[in-house]
Design a protein around this nucleic acid. Structure first.
Lengths: 190, 190, 190, 190
DNA sequence: CATGAATGAGCTTTCATTCAT
DNA sequence: GATGAATGAAAGCTCATTCAT
């Protein structure tokens, strides 16, 4: 379910791949996607060659980082969708996605700039999340908890944008909550 | 008023500076901040040397572009603040800022990545806008048109985040309006 | 006449371009086309950047070296074609081309391997030489000095191949002459 | 007879060695000596490690390929030398060597560029061929079928050069024959 | 002042070779 | 013995910045 590695990787190879991915995730988030592959390899304790064996391109590495984050998000939304009533499920899922999305937008930009077809390489995990969200949205709408005219594109934009808001207020949890108050109230029918 | 040029520039020098700035504004917005200085110079019809005479660093150019956009925004908010009632003034100004901010976040990131102290170099025009916004916010709150517990940090975050939402829906004006509906309703007291 | 520089190059730029070309010609001939651009730049006393400004690709540099050699050959064949009778003109031109062609084949191979359309990039100087050779061939055939059934493709192959022979015997001039005896006798009608 | 393997190889090891050699022969001939060891190993169905166990260096592999081709040529010349009269033997052997030599020059160049002493590592099979050719040459000269002043160095150069000619005309068999006509007529006494 | 040629550190990527599994 | 993951020294090329013209 998780990404589908082509063949069973040797233990050490898998360990290295994972380490590169972990390091890249952190470094890209911290210092931006401009960090050099060399530096990522060094931070992961492997040679550049190893990095490129696992991810044949810098963009492939970026995409892999994205995919992992998306997969994690998909798993968490799945867990949430099953419990609570439709309204609670929708709003807690919204909050979850927002909080897990920090920094994601830069990735998408970098991938797009490199000519990678974002929709193609990230579609599978994305589709799962979107399907889940679409289900939650329509159920919450049916339950009268969310404005009926909202469609998926807006929902996604709202998720991304709320993520950006929250990202900016990382130092002030109370202010973050006020953001959620505003957005959640705005989502409800008037 | 405009950024503080040390001494009066010769007419042709000023013209060159302006052209570079115009071109850079457009090119950075269109194709991202990764575009090379060479290309910007060529598009502006000057040599790289000229570009670097006016902006000693690529980041200086980025900052100058930002400053100009912020100054323009400041001017527009000033114009809006003077007319209409406090509620209308606040909301139309919010909308204005959001719509003028497209792509700004990439700039900030690029500047920050280069170690530029964003707050230092952009503070002057930013301060003016913020002062204006603070005034509009408190007046709108006094008039009962905006939640009373909202403070400036959240407002700024909301502006940035709404900008991100709107940026994503640039192709679908109706969806953009639904975003504004959500955010504006959320901003109003319950 | 010589290559057609797009615009008048600045004096120092032209000097650098020429130096790179000279050095590349020598180094490629001496040590093969595998030599790194860095090394060529260093040997020419310029930075890599300069090399790549003048020749945007390593293959472009290879092609430029080839073109210069071909142009020189074209000039020499032109000088020869005008004097002597048709037989003498043909044979002295054949010898000239052979002797000027040392190492050329490696270039063609490298260019072809890089996917450069050799015929496209070298066609202009090549065409001139070929036209001249075709003229010399048919005149020599009309004069009964060369086998009448020979066509241009064979002539070119004979030139290249005789070049390879001669290249191998660079240490032994007498043996080289015996090669020419064999080939020239073979070229004559029986 | 075959290159001198140190000790008897295990059956599967020998099979692997042979497969690598076969594949390398084909791939080098088809796509040039620039093909990576990894790719050759993959095409041979073995790991790179196995390739390097049998041929400690890429150049060692190149040399082994060359040696095998030379050994095959030696065997064929041996077969030809025994039948026919001296003139026919000489000329058919000349043609055979030329036609079997396609692409060989690239190998020699690559080996030489790597600092391998070509004469040392290829001498044994080469010597056998040369001895045979020397015999054929002097017998053909004694029979009056070949110019008496020709020596071995020229003969070898002629072989290599004729190979280059023929290589260039691989698409046009009739033209190839005209090349042989020229060279063979040139070889005969006047 | 304007120009654009020159610079070289730095980038991504490849590949012959080694060595743990 | 066989494997293929790991290695890291290059390679070709880009680009912000400097400086002679």
């Amino acid at each position: 379910m998780s990404g589908g590695q082509e063949r069973p990787l040797r233990a050490d190879a898998a360990r290295n791949r994972a380490r590169v991915l972990d390091v890249a995730t952190e470094v890209f988030a911290t210092r931006g996607v401009g960090v050099s592959t060399e530096e990522i390899a060094r931070a992961a304790g492997v040679g550049v060659g190893t990095l490129f064996r696992h991810f044949p391109t810098k963009e492939a590495l970026l995409a892999a980082v994205m995919v992992r984050r998306l997969e994690a998000m998909a798993a968490m939304t799945a867990r949430l969708a099953d419990r609570d009533g439709p309204a609670e499920a929708f709003f807690s899922c919204f909050r979850l996605v927002v909080e897990q999305s920090e920094g994601k937008s830069e990735f998408v930009r970098a991938l797009a700039a490199a000519g990678v077809d974002v929709h193609a390489s990230l579609q599978e995990p994305t589709r799962e999340i979107q399907t889940r969200l679409a289900g939650l949205l329509s159920e919450a709408q049916r339950a009268g908890a969310v404005r009926p005219e909202l469609c998926m594109p807006e929902l996604l934009a709202l998720l991304v944008g709320t993520g950006a808001m929250v990202e900016q207020l990382s130092a002030d949890p109370a202010a973050r909550e006020r953001i959620f108050d505003v957005v959640f109230d705005g989502l409800r029918p008037r």
